[in-house]
Design a binder for these strands. Structure first.
Lengths: 215, 215
DNA sequence: GTCTATATGCCGATAGAC
DNA sequence: GTCTATCGGCATATAGAC
């Protein structure tokens, strides 16, 4: 493995720091010094701090979302072929697997998920708008698919249930993050101790599917 | 109603702005000018920007957590009296009702919930440590209660399920927030349109209970 | 308790030498 | 592509008049 380029080092450092202190809470000085680069390097490689954030988000989200849509498409067309509606579990897995299988082997995906949390929270700021722009097509496709798996639900119920699923998954990632980070571990040990990611994923999938199918 | 004090005006403005742009993204200048107060007022009334955040959090969380623990205690002792374990729904309601009934009549609680999202995301920063300090006793009490309602679950499963419940609720609040805020509405209308809070709460409670009772 | 003025320092961004 | 020096601005915090 050759040593990573300055640009990649900046992306890695920015990801780490944005996840810890948020976009606004992280200075370009902190990023460049963490990456061992000079102060002007962010402007040289990305143009601005904001453009750096965009690349940080896209670097992780675009491959995950590609996998999500492919898995969903595969499940949907197989269901059509078998003359049945897609199952709720198939849809949940298409949304969750691309994220959680990566999280199991990559520390940085867990770090990254913290940035997603932050992005979702800051709706109308730079961060939130960027994030939603990236996620929009995926959200629309999955709500539509849920409509096939859950007949009798109106549009509003489907939107709500989709977002419940997202909420459960985000919080699942948050717990993985807590469990892996020594600093969090100390803070949370009493009520979120040593979490095994296998157990978490298994329990989470069953929680979400049961919730989506409720009533 | 007498006009509100400078201190209350500062708390209100800080809550609004922290929710929109985060703690780091909000300047004391923005807060004081929004509140119609002078620049030095935050340091005079609170000592620092950080101490202001602490008061913003406690002002909302302490009454809610008091109600949560009272409702939980009432449910638990009634169950004992009737010689049965508490139901999952009773526990979910004890945790969620104090928050969501307030959210139905108070715009500011919805705003506030955004700050909770931010707090949970920034685990090891000022914000996260503050938040967890306030929530700790509640978290411990509810995980213990879940153990009574869900026999046969080990400690780890109970912790995970508790956090799934929290995740679902947080995301539910996030959606209420989106639905009420005109700026968010524009961004999200395709996949989270006009959300009725009655429908959301009803669907959410059933989602959570089904998820918790899964398997 | 209010407000102005200001101290002190970090911010993002850029110019220009190498 | 790297790095230094620096610009102009805004940050938090405080001192001190009223």
């Amino acid at each position: 493995m050759g040593k990573k380029s300055t640009k990649d080092a900046l992306l890695d450092s920015a990801e780490k720091l944005f996840a810890k202190e948020g976009f606004h809470g992280t200075s370009v000085r902190a990023i460049t010094s963490e990456a061992g680069a000079h102060l002007a390097s962010i402007n040289y490689h990305f143009g601005s701090k904001e453009a750096l954030l965009k690349e940080v988000l896209e670097r992780r989200l675009l491959p995950i979302n590609k996998d999500r849509l492919e898995m969903l498409e595969a499940a949907l067309s197989q269901a059509v072929q078998e003359g049945r509606p897609p199952s709720v579990m198939e849809i949940v897995r298409a949304f969750a697997d691309p994220l959680f299988t990566r999280a199991r082997t990559s520390e940085s995906i867990i770090t990254f998920s913290n940035i997603v949390q932050i992005s979702l929270t800051q709706h109308d700021s730079t961060v939130g708008a960027l994030f939603l722009g990236i996620m929009r097509p995926v959200i629309i496709a999955f709500i539509k698919a849920l409509g096939l798996a859950l007949p009798g639900h109106d549009k509003e119920q489907l939107q709500l249930k989709f977002h419940f699923m997202v909420g459960s998954m985000l919080h699942g990632m948050r717990m993985l993050s807590m469990a892996r980070n020594p600093a969090h571990k100390k803070l949370h040990s009493e009520f979120a101790g040593n979490i095994d990611s296998e157990i978490l994923m298994d329990l989470m999938y069953r929680y979400i599917v049961a919730g989506l199918e409720a009533e």
